[in-house]
Design a protein around this nucleic acid. Structure first.
Length: 667
RNA sequence: GCCCACAUAGCUCAGUGGCAGAGCACUUCCUUGGUAAGGAAGAGGUCUUGGGUUCAAAUCCCAAUGUGGGCUCCA
């Protein structure tokens, strides 16, 4: 059933171990299974930056920067990350910065009520209930007031309160949110039978805030900081609670670290897939279909190479590809449970008094094919792959580029297995994932999510499946994290994460071992060796996940400089003069005949300009043809890294490039 | 969905109430070249849409649509 095997599952966005459960979302029928889950997307924090003004005096720098073979700068970004705060040691300082920001805001906006103000990755935030909406001009004023507090070097003074006195104090200050926090803490303590919590405040200068601590010794210990942005944020993240205003800031030990961080943000902004998608002419978005991608010819080429590679892998691994309808009767969705639990995310269509929905997932229809025959134990494993076009009615405010769309295609598959085949199938799957990711130089990390409290099905079945998964992961080699109780209510699962070139963690695929949903709800059976009907297990898996999202991640990972094998344009033939055009076309056809994606620059521009354009488009090879080359039937390759290679005979070049493409190496 | 911001030429953006702008791209002409921008001319916009204020609106106000930053990293 209705699983989101990788699908549009959102990346966690935080560079933390997958096992870190701080960002864990509640597990339940809606969240884990049916919903595409509205997980926050913190990675975009990296690129929250207003567009700089582009003046006509300085396009050169920016342009040249973009043209660089960006994987070099990706390495630098990784280095930059190595210097960043990875262990949370900056947290007290950043949390102190949040307090200083709150002090400044209270000073500038009397009557402000405070929400919470934690340290976060790379910085801090604080939520405020303010008398008026913030404007862009407020941030510098707040910063200035913060600097004054830092210059004054007020000590942070901790005070512990009797709980009732503390509460009275906060109530007296009108800090209703703080009172709520305190009350909740006390209630929780009572319920769990633990002692009353210690109520502590920290004071710096005139400002007192309920806080557990710790803090740095004094305001002067706060390092270089900058306020970054502000936005709305529901109190406690709940839509039925007031909308507060959140200000984000960043703080570091040294000016160099702050500068490095700001530079990283800027680099991330340059790699933003939406920006590169336009620059490289890969895709566009239009308000006639919000949340759905218009793939341009080059984007579609990229798409087809990824899809082709996966099809080749799947063919080799014994998958069979199917294709099922997009428009499907409500009857199927009622049986699958979508109609009850997922309706708000489905696009419903009425025709001749019947209701249909655009499919949000492929799984229910996969079972229709499974059930089209009486299946024998000899038929299993049955691996049904489908590149189905899915629609999910995501809330308008959550749409974002390629990473959060309403229409997408997954490299989806449902594998029906006998219980005794589970081990071998999972092993094969882990291998497939490693192989596919190696095409991009990505190294998958696995996390094992186990049975949640509200699990369906026979606990013994769960135990067996979990022990099989654990065993497979143990033998597979390499570390994996365990996320206790983070499985879906019908399936334990393996989540796959990668780190991209900017050090951002993304959740990619999910392998779910469906014990009960598809098999039970659709009453799937096979006839076992003794002639009796038996229940198969269904593995839901996607390796890329949503192709849209995967391509978005690839664009940012490679900064648009895709590996040769999947680059939309693998080579541009650059004739030096018009008289070389004919030979250029001839060479291009030769290469195209070998399955390579090759363009000819037929413009009347000078060769330098043609090379510049090809560089801008991050084309792996430029093949220069002048008098010498035409005469000798050779071409002089230049790589996008700027390397000029010796002229090479056409046939030899075609052989070399075709081999290189077939190798699917990540560079 | 909610909060805030933004929406001007294909792209990136200037333009704060009085004739619609720039660079790149595009078209044409000149240039026929050796590894990151040769030169000139031209064309191109109902300033997202709908209302309103005003003698006058790209500009101010309201709304819609779209886009962007966010919306439990828990005192």
């Amino acid at each position: 059933m209705p699983v989101d095997p990788a699908g549009t599952a959102r990346h966690s966005g935080r560079t933390r171990a997958p096992g870190d459960d701080a960002g864990r979302r509640p597990v339940g029928p809606r969240e884990a299974c049916l919903s595409s889950s509205h997980v926050d997307d913190h990675a975009t924090v990296l690129r929250r930056r207003p567009m700089p003004q582009q003046t006509h005096d300085e396009p050169a720098d920016e342009a040249l920067d973009l043209l660089a073979p960006e994987r070099g700068s990706a390495e630098e970004l990784l280095d930059a990350r190595a210097h960043a705060d990875g262990d949370g040691s900056l947290d007290p300082m950043r949390h102190s910065a949040a307090h200083i920001m709150a002090e400044a805001v209270m000073d500038l906006f009397p009557g402000t009520k405070l929400g919470i103000g934690p340290a976060i990755r790379d910085g801090f935030y604080y939520d405020f209930d303010l008398p008026r909406p913030l404007t862009q001009e407020d941030l510098p004023a707040i910063e200035e007031r913060m600097r004054a507090s830092i210059a004054a070097d007020h000590p942070f003074v901790r005070r512990e309160w009797d709980p009732d006195e503390g509460r009275a104090f906060l109530a007296d200050q009108g800090q209703t949110y703080k009172v709520e926090i305190l009350d909740d803490l006390r209630t929780a303590a009572q319920l769990s039978g633990t002692p009353e919590p210690v109520v502590s405040t920290y004071q710096q200068g005139p400002f007192i805030d309920l806080c557990r601590g710790p803090h740095v010794a004094s305001t002067g210990k706060v390092g270089p900081f900058q306020l970054l942005s502000f936005s709305g944020a529901y109190w406690r993240g709940r839509e039925d609670r007031p909308m507060l205003q959140r200000i984000y800031g960043t703080a570091w030990n040294t000016q160099e670290e702050l500068d490095l961080y700001l530079w990283r943000r800027e680099e991330a902004r340059k790699r933003d897939h939406r920006r590169l998608g336009t620059q490289l002419d890969l895709f566009s978005f239009h308000d006639i279909s919000p949340g759905s991608v218009f793939w341009h010819p080059k984007g579609q080429r990229l798409w087809r190479s990824l899809e082709g590679a996966m099809r080749e892998l799947q063919d080799r691994r014994g998958y069979q590809e199917v294709s099922t309808p997009i428009l499907v009767s409500e009857r199927l969705w009622r049986q699958s449970g979508h109609w009850d639990h997922y309706a708000e995310n489905m696009f419903v269509v009425e025709s001749e008094n019947q209701l249909f929905s655009l499919k949000p997932m492929n799984c229910p229809e996969s079972t229709v094919i499974y059930r089209s025959h009486l299946r024998s134990y000899r038929d299993l494993p049955l691996r049904l792959a489908e590149y189905g076009r899915l629609h999910r009615n995501e809330r308008s405010g959550t749409l974002s580029g390629l990473t959060r769309v309403r229409q997408f295609i997954q490299d989806d598959a449902h594998i029906y297995v006998r219980p005794d085949q589970l081990t071998a199938e999972l092993e094969a799957l882990l291998g497939e994932i490693r192989e596919a990711y190696s095409w991009f130089g990505l190294v998958p990390r696995f996390a094992f999510a186990t049975r949640p409290d509200k699990a369906l099905g026979d606990p013994a079945l769960w135990d067996r499946a979990e022990s099989i998964i654990k065993d497979v992961l143990d033998r597979h080699g390499g570390d994996y994290a365990i996320k206790p109780k983070d499985g879906t209510f019908y399936a334990p699962k393996i989540d796959i994460y990668i780190d991209d070139a900017l050090g951002r963690e993304w959740q990619m695929a999910t392998i779910q071992v469906d014990l009960v949903m598809l098999p039970e709800r659709f009453d799937l059976t096979y006839i076992d060796e003794s002639g009796q009907p038996a229940r198969p297990m269904a593995i839901h898996r996607a390796i890329y996940g949503s192709l849209e999202r995967f391509i978005g991640i690839l664009i940012e990972h490679f900064g648009g400089a895709f590996p040769f094998w999947c680059a939309p344009v693998q080579a541009v033939v650059v004739p030096i003069a018009d008289r070389h055009l004919e030979a250029a076309e001839e060479l291009a056809s030769l290469l195209r005949g070998r399955g390579l994606r090759v363009d000819v620059d037929e413009s009347s521009n000078r060769m330098q300009n043609k090379i510049r354009v090809a560089q801008e488009q991050k084309v792996p090879y430029m093949l220069v043809l002048g008098d010498r080359e035409v005469e000798a039937r050779t071409a002089a390759p230049r790589t996008r890294a700027g390397e000029q290679q010796p002229a090479e005979a056409w046939e030899a070049l075609a052989d070399r490039l075709a081999t290189e493409a077939a190798d699917r190496r990540p560079e």
